[in-house]
Design a protein around this nucleic acid. Structure first.
Length: 197
DNA sequence: TCTACGATTTACT
DNA sequence: GTAAATCGTAGAA
C-alpha cells in the first residue's frame, strides 16, 4: 500500500521522521529490491543554509526540488556518488528529505551484485551513496514520482513496530553556519544500519 | 569559458 | 587516523 500525495506535501522535518520504518522499493525488470528506511535528514528549503535551494536558488540541478512533494531529487556528489532525496512540501516550496541509510529486506543478492566487494551485510546500504549504488539509483530517476511510479517508489509499512527516533546534527554540512548544528538528522534508535552513530 | 568544491566512499598509514 | 578518487555544477570572470 502506498501513501497519498498529501503525506509528502508537509514540512520536510515531519516527512523525515514519518518516513522512518517504511519501505523504499526498487523494481528493474524482474529484479525487485525492498529496503526499510532507517535514517533520513531534512533539508528545509530557502531558509536553510545547508539546503541546495537556500535563498531560493533554482538551477538545473535543483529543479526537481521545486516539484510537489513525493517526487525524487537525485544529484551527483564528489563526482562518484549519487544521493536520493524525497521531495517534501508543496510545489515551488523546495524542501527535501535525504535518505541516508536503509536496511535490506528483499533482494539482498541483487544488492550484493551492485555492491561488489562488500561482504558485511550492514555495510551494503548504510550511507547515501552506498544505498544509491545498491539500488541502482542514478540521474535517470531524478524527478520521478515516488507515489505513483513503478521503477522506484515508497511503500507503506502496515505493521510498523514501535521504535524511538533519535535526532542528531546533519552530516558533512560544515558550510551551513548556524544551521549545521540543527538536529535535523533522524534515525531509528539502536538500528545497526545507520551511517553514523 | 574557467575554477573550486561538495548532503561521500574507500583504501591506505 | 588521513587522503585520494573524480566530475558535474554553481558562481565568478
Amino acid at each position: 500500500m502506498r501513501f497519498k500525495p498529501s503525506f509528502f506535501s508537509r514540512n520536510a522535518l515531519v516527512v523525515a521522521e514519518e518516513l522512518l520504518g517504511h519501505f523504499l522499493v526498487r523494481q528493474t525488470g524482474k529484479q525487485r529490491i525492498v529496503a526499510k528506511i532507517v535514517e533520513t535528514e531534512a533539508y528545509c528549503g530557502i531558509e536553510d543554509k545547508g539546503c541546495h535551494t537556500f535563498g531560493g536558488r533554482r538551477t538545473e540541478r535543483t529543479e526537481a526540488m521545486f516539484l510537489p512533494g513525493g517526487h525524487a531529487y537525485i544529484y551527483m556528489i564528489y563526482g562518484m556518488n549519487f544521493c536520493l532525496n524525497v521531495v517534501a512540501a508543496a510545489k515551488n516550496d523546495p524542501q527535501a528529505v535525504l535518505i541516508r541509510a536503509v536496511e535490506p529486506v528483499e533482494g539482498i543478492d541483487f544488492i550484493k551484485e551492485n555492491r561488489k566487494g562488500i561482504v558485511k551485510e550492514q555495510d551494503l546500504t548504510n550511507g547515501p551513496g552506498k544505498l544509491a549504488k545498491a539500488l541502482m539509483i542514478d540521474k535517470n530517476l531524478n524527478g520521478c514520482d515516488l507515489v505513483r511510479g513503478k521503477e522506484l517508489y515508497i511503500e507503506r509499512n502496515l505493521s510498523l513496530p514501535d521504535f524511538e527516533i533519535v535526532s542528531a546534527p546533519r552530516v558533512n554540512i560544515d558550510y551551513a553556519g548556524e544551521f549545521k548544528d540543527k538536529p535535523w538528522r533522524k534515525y531509528i534508535k539502536g538500528c545497526k544500519f545507520v551511517s553514523k552513530l
